[in-house]
Design a protein around this nucleic acid. Structure first.
Lengths: 373, 373
DNA sequence: ACGGTTAGTCGAAGCGTTTCGACAGACCGT
DNA sequence: ACGGTCTGTCGAAACGCTTCGACTAACCGT
């Protein structure tokens, strides 16, 4: 493997000159630069990452700190990770995946003092997250994905839950729904201060108030069974509900199953909209889910770019950005249909070639015929 | 930040002694070791990763080379990634995520010559994968996840597709099914030599032959629509089919939808078993899918451990290991029921509290009553 | 013609480790 | 009492780069 020395010798210049050609830290004449470039090409020179890192005190490595979770990453988180990785890679940086237990602060401190990370992205941030303080003390620039309660002087990117909920509610209200139930994460999750659950809860209340309708909210465990249970509660509390807005990717499938079990069809009898969902997951349901698509990979990219800006100029202003999920209408939402209590919802008869779109349209048409308003 | 020098001074020993305490490369007396340890603790010393990497020529960084895919990672791949990350982390290594376009061999070469990676894990290996040669030339030890066609001298971990298919078929045949259709990945995917598609295809033919029944195989695009289309073809070719074995996590949901659309219930009319699937995804379906659960995170762990063994001793024997997916019976498989053509499959009447298990059992019981054999 | 910039290059001193050779003692069998 | 092997420690030389200070030559306005 060729070193800078070899290049310098071949180009008949000093090592420092080669370095300057590479980094542009000082002006080098065109002629010399060409010579050096030629030598590098001939020797297939590649700078040694560790040596460069040691000398320059910049590793060009970014850390992605993900809590070593019980249930692994969802599709949204995965998209975030790959988005961040590509962005880092495009900028000539490396992204290391560091699973650190959320409350292993010593481990985190150790990681930070190894001086291997130029900066870090912190995933799954809690409203009150000690990791932030640890990283700051260690002098590691960071960007949060998500938000702590107090965001002063902190860069973050996060989903714009307010706007997302607002748009979702607007979609449903626009279709004519008045009785909308919001299925959130579990009570325990809410209690422990999980930001998205809290923020969407408040946003839902606000959005419903804005439309002058009463908000109904139900927590659900993150599972199909949880969704089913939540649905049962929902029907107890609001037998006349016509739409479900679900924050819970897992529960939503249980809700779908529960509706089918009651002989209710989607979207004719009940519309279902899923929050913060990836298209891949939305497409799995039948009918495909109308969903607020999470900007997973964009979040990753933006977070990395913001972090890099902090590294280039440490005077760079903090970056706080919220991205909304975008509404993608698929087959699971439509105008409210028959009055509730009508429970003759046998599945459509065989129509083997029916695509998602087709069935959506048929459903819509049928529902429209029956519309009460 | 304290350096080794500081520690040495405080402990009144030489720097090299401190180093030996740390690495154990040479014997150090208990007394000295204690002094040094105390000094390190007092100064909160942490070795500087880059310096150590430069001097020792070992970065303690492993690369995870993932193709910069169109559709992102599935649940299985994600589990693999996190499994690998934790294993690396537990061994004191770091895992960098390097998205490299599968045919950007120059980029790969560049990455490898930066000497930043002690070793690499190669994901989504094709039967004939040039990346292997590039990495070998660059002298980067590697472990494949998946297999190339020729695996001489190559370490890999992969799913034991033979056994997985075999077990799945045995499960269905054991329940009494004879007419089983195998839904594979798309024809294009098969044509381009995607290992899992080819291997499962052959394994399915073999397993069916073993039971003396005729194999029927149908390719499907990786989407719900693809699944629906495949199902239609399947019914054309084998109107009497009673079970579907699907290799395609996306298509399987289309198949489920398609069956419901025809008024067929699962598993009473048709059993569905999904191959290489994560529990999380299997639970999304209603009824929950009987599936061959992929050993995603175990694969990641094992791959890392094998790679580390190569790094410690470069004479370490190559590691080739196949892990089967394990059968997890959920609600979508049962004994074959009514004769095909019976199409009165209205969904079960409202039973809001029905859990996956309960409905599975009821289904079983009902189906058993009707069994023909 | 003169100090003052600026462009272009070089040599050397790090950066914080590991590792090699050397060496002093202790301990061995003979 | 004698070479020989171990144990424990040290100093110094890498590892391959960046960066600082210094120097030369050219160019500026006056």
């Amino acid at each position: 493997m060729a070193t800078m020395h070899d290049v310098a010798r071949l180009a008949r210049v000093s090592v420092s000159t080669v370095s300057y050609v590479l980094t542009g830290a000082r002006p080098i004449s065109q002629a010399t630069r060409d010579k050096v470039r030629a030598a590098m090409a001939e020797l297939e020179y590649q700078p040694h990452a560790m040596a460069r890192g040691l000398a320059s005190r910049r590793s060009r490595i970014l850390g992605l700190l993900l809590p070593i979770d019980d249930r692994g990453l969802g599709a949204t988180e995965t998209a975030f990770v790959t988005g961040a990785a590509s962005a880092a890679s495009a900028a000539g940086y490396h992204l290391v995946l560091s699973p650190v237990d959320a409350d292993d602060l010593d481990g985190l401190r150790r990681l930070a003092s190894q001086r291997m990370l130029d900066g870090a992205l912190l995933m799954e941030v809690q409203l009150d997250d000690d990791r932030v303080a640890v990283l700051r003390e260690a002098g590691v620039p960071l960007v949060l994905i998500g938000r702590t309660g107090d965001t002063t002087d902190l860069s973050y990117v996060d989903i714009d839950f307010d706007r997302t909920v607002h748009d979702a509610v607007a979609h449903l209200v626009g279709l004519g729904h008045r009785r909308i139930v919001y299925v959130n994460h579990s009570a325990a999750t809410i209690a422990e201060g999980y930001g998205p659950a809290l923020r969407t809860r408040d946003a839902f209340a606000a959005a419903m108030a804005e439309h002058g309708v009463e908000p109904l909210m139900i927590p659900a465990e993150d599972s199909a069974a949880g969704g089913r249970a939540a649905l049962a509660t929902a029907f107890d509390r609001a037998p006349d509900l016509t739409a479900v807005l679900a924050m819970n990717e897992r529960a939503v499938f249980g809700i779908l199953g529960g509706l089918a079990g009651r002989g209710l069809t989607v979207p004719d009898d009940v519309s279902v909209v899923s929050m913060v969902t990836s298209p891949q997951v939305a497409e799995l349901a039948t009918p495909a889910l109308t969903a607020m698509t999470s900007p997973g990979s964009a979040l990753g990219r933006i977070a990395v770019e913001a972090l890099l800006r902090h590294l280039e100029l440490d005077s760079a202003p903090i970056h706080q950005e919220l991205l909304p999920c975008t509404l993608e209408v698929r087959g699971s939402s439509g105008p409210p249909g028959r009055p509730t209590g009508d429970t003759t919802g046998a599945a459509d008869a065989a129509d083997p070639e029916a695509s998602g779109t087709t069935s959506k349209n048929t459903a819509r048409r049928r529902a429209a015929t029956r519309r009460r308003a």
